[in-house]
Nucleic acid binder design. Structure first.
Lengths: 288, 288
DNA sequence: CTTGGAATGGAATGTATGTCTCATTTTTTA
DNA sequence: TAAAAAATGAGACATACATTCCATTCCAAG
């Protein structure tokens, strides 16, 4: 009798993950209707947590009594105690993203010590990632990648705060064996470098407010040469935006006066690897 | 009569945030016991979502009937409909961090198009931030900041993939008016630069597997000169770890062969700004 | 101090809920 | 194929529940 097994089995799943594992484990050996509920339960755990036995049974297309039997098969003494597990899951599962961030920020603002600073930067980075993940325009991404994939040489243009991103792009392009040229201010030969760029090339330009004048100037020059520009910047009023064929607006959160780079980095990497993939694909097609 | 106001007020709060705002807004004008419940409800929203009217009332120290009146004051027709709002909050609040990441990763792996690549990098960055947020050793952070704050010049040492982080550190240190020297390979004068470093200085060295041989060599040389090193690396077996006075283990998630830099960036910024703060503080103390 | 009205406590009430029982159907075993 | 066992469906039932009602207390205005 199933009740016997239930009472014998002392290891009643008390947490959702164990329960889930138990269900998946026993799936084969369970009656049809029970499996039907089991599937519904794992697919709609929220409904189990909040619904009544009758409503759940109706949604799953079974009788309430079957729901009870399902619970008993798993070792619970009734639907109610099974439901507790589903409720605990909602209670204990990590608080929402926003709440976690709020906690981090609160610690960062109120808290003392350097851990608070660290938390602040983590929070800023997370926020930025979260924002861009929602805001990114897929069409722009495709456009930018197509544009860059066509380029003979990709010039990477960024100064000051954006420079780390540029250097990472250059590194990644290099690893992907995509010809690229990092335009740094250090060497002092920017003007000459830029002069080499032709409309067959392309530029990734990155600049955030306050826009480094050199970046803007160089972007202007290079766009006047007919070289298409993909810009990553922080506002539609950015001077970069007017020179760019495609441009992305990235809103980076800041902490302690230093803006995060995480969102820009993610976008930069996506562009880079996207170009790499696109080149591989078109390369294949040409051969075929 | 309160019921009249309730029926008159058509704008019944249907979502948790509105409800919260409404409660906080009316707090002053509500009866004592109602406020008592209101406070309990905002402090223990999960209990409201799962408990029964009786159990909640007991926890809040009031009568069940008061709970009903509270709901009615807010425009609901009973406790049950008030409870719905608290349940929706749990349902609709963004799925847990892990679930969201899983979704992103699933999209990144299964999905086509370049958006998937982007999602992959965002997921990798988020994961890294999440991991380091838990794993960071606060004592190490304090030690590292103290060490660096004492330094006359902070040398920043990193190549290849870690170089963007180094360049951002150098930028930030510069903005904070902290003397620093970025040791890049480009100029080819690394050996000479390193020779200037004394035990009164300090080094931030960053290197991940596969460790750039130049970084390791330079770290060895500089540590033999008695210059203390703060290392950011990815394993306790890292050659950097053995030269370092303080070292951090940062596990960066990777996507498409490119590891995220977000966690390293956050740590780097925390170190930098931490040093800045520490210097300000000790500066003040000396004056006082 | 009195009185009107709101606020509160506590018990009564009707409903909705989980659980159980039993008849019926399906599946397994001999 | 027959018999036994398991699974299922559907209704019955007790209980726990939200809600309501009424008596009492508290508070403020006159």
């Amino acid at each position: 009798m199933s009740l016997d097994r239930a009472t014998m089995d002392e290891r009643v799943p008390r947490d959702f993950e164990t329960l889930r594992a138990t269900i998946l484990d026993r799936r084969e050996s369970l009656p049809k209707r029970i499996v039907q509920i089991a599937a519904y339960a794992l697919d709609n755990p929220d409904d189990i947590a909040f619904g009544t036995a009758a409503s759940i049974a109706a949604s799953a297309g079974v009788q309430p009594s079957t729901l009870i039997r399902f619970a008993q098969q798993l070792g619970f003494d009734g639907f109610t105690s099974l439901q507790q597990v589903f409720r605990e899951r909602l209670r204990e599962r990590n608080s929402s993203y926003d709440e976690r961030l709020q906690a981090l920020r609160a610690k960062a603002e109120g808290g003392a010590g350097h851990r608070a600073i660290f938390d602040g930067f983590v929070a800023a980075a997370s926020t930025s990632l979260n924002d861009i993940s929602r805001a990114l325009d897929e069409a722009h991404l495709e456009d930018a990648i197509s544009l860059l994939a066509r380029a003979e040489t990709i010039y990477v243009l960024a100064k000051r705060r954006s420079y780390p991103v540029a250097s990472y792009i250059a590194y990644a392009l290099g690893k992907l064996k995509i010809r690229n040229q990092l335009i740094e201010s250090a060497a002092g030969l920017n003007a000459e470098m830029i002069a080499f760029a032709t409309p067959a090339d392309a530029v990734i330009a990155i600049s955030f407010s306050p826009y480094a004048p050199a970046t803007i100037e160089e972007a202007r020059t290079i766009s006047e040469q007919g070289v298409p520009i993909v810009a990553i910047t922080d506002s539609s009023f950015s001077p970069l935006a007017q020179f760019a064929k495609v441009w992305f607006e990235v809103a980076e959160a800041d902490f302690a006066g230093f803006r995060s780079l995480s969102a820009t980095m993610a976008l930069a990497m996506a562009l880079t690897v996207g170009v790499g993939e696109k080149r591989r694909d078109t390369g294949r097609k040409r051969k075929a």
